[in-house]
Design a binder for these strands. Structure first.
Length: 310
DNA sequence: CTATAAACCTGCTGGC
DNA sequence: TGCCAGCAGGTTTATA
């Protein structure tokens, strides 16, 4: 699942690869992927746009385009971006290139979906950006949850509204974290997943950060001590930075621009490790459900009742 | 406000 | 081996 580190890693790769290139046009094979504006306008506006820069905000990838436009890509659960070299044929099973004809071609497309192949034929391709130099930027997404949007520059605030503090920015201090959590009821873990509080944490890195700080996921946020808040802030920053350094966490979803799996999987301490010994104390890790999400923690290191005696 | 749940989707797993 | 219910989780929307 792409969280902040996966998006940041992709942003860095894209920055190297496609800044300065031009989007000739786009094909959309799953119209609901385009969240704004409507499909015809999106297709018309995206044509012949130079790519000026790549940014990230939370889990949103932002591509600045010629003509004071910006495009956002949010991959949600299973979205991926791939860059195909020139000359590779895109074969999605569609006979025609008119993306607006999807309505009639849809069922056939589904039947003819193919595996991702070395020759560039693609499975689960939802959107294809044809670059003027012949390369193609593919957006694939088996579960179709991801969204791509296009906005005028002056709509940027609207496009990114509701996103909380950037955890890798200088303003993310333990005081800022305390302020954000101040007066909030309920357990800490659901609040860590709330993008309006901190932008970019998902289920994997939330569990990892809580483990780092030895905080039980069900601890009432209001009960955290200043020391714990500082440890939590440090844990969030550490696990995110490590995730980026390792090229992201791939269980089976995330791949980089060239289809390589991220290596951070080998560095995960608790996520989906229930039953395995805690890397700190050896106690078997446990899994509970918090706010509808699988939650992994060490029952010895992350206590609900008593703080460890020092 | 908070919180719980369903919806969006499809691939995968485990039980029978 | 084959079928099917259930699970996975980021976000939005609906309901208590």
């Amino acid at each position: 699942m792409p969280e902040l580190p996966e998006v940041e890693y992709t942003a860095r790769q894209l920055r190297e690869a496609i800044v300065g290139a031009t989007i000739a046009d786009a094909c959309v094979f799953w119209p609901r992927t385009i969240g704004h504006p409507d499909l015809p306008e999106f297709l018309a506006e995206i044509r012949e746009r130079a790519i000026l820069g790549i940014r990230r905000r939370g889990k949103q990838l932002i591509i600045d385009l010629d003509g004071d436009l910006l495009m956002t890509i949010h991959r949600r659960m299973t979205g991926n971006l791939y860059l195909l070299p020139p000359g590779w044929e895109l074969d999605t099973g569609l006979r025609e290139r008119d993306p607006l004809a999807w309505g009639t071609l849809g069922p056939r497309f589904h039947k003819q979906e193919q595996e991702v192949q070395e020759d560039g034929s693609t499975r689960y391709c939802r959107v294809c950006f044809n670059l003027a130099d012949g390369r193609r930027l593919l957006y694939t997404d088996p579960r179709k949850f991801g969204r791509i949007t296009l906005w005028a520059r002056e709509q940027e605030a609207e496009a990114l509204q509701g996103l909380g503090i950037e955890p890798l920015s200088e303003e993310f201090t333990s005081e800022a974290l305390a302020r954000k959590l101040q007066g909030r009821k309920g357990a800490i873990k659901p609040l860590l997943l709330d993008q309006q509080i901190i932008a970019g944490l998902g289920n994997i890195y939330a569990d990892e950060a809580l483990f780092y700080a030895s905080i039980h996921p069900l601890r009432p946020a209001a009960s955290l001590t200043p020391l714990e808040l500082d440890l939590l802030r440090e844990g969030i920053v550490r696990v995110l930075q490590l995730g980026i350094e390792h090229g992201g966490t791939s269980f089976n979803e995330f791949h980089d621009l060239w289809g390589e799996a991220g290596e951070n999987y080998n560095h995960v301490r608790v996520y989906q490790q229930d039953g395995n010994p805690c890397p700190r104390c050896g106690t078997p890790l446990e899994r509970i459900v918090v706010a509808q999400r699988g939650t992994h923690y060490c029952p010895h290191c992350q206590r609900l009742d008593q703080l460890e005696q020092l």
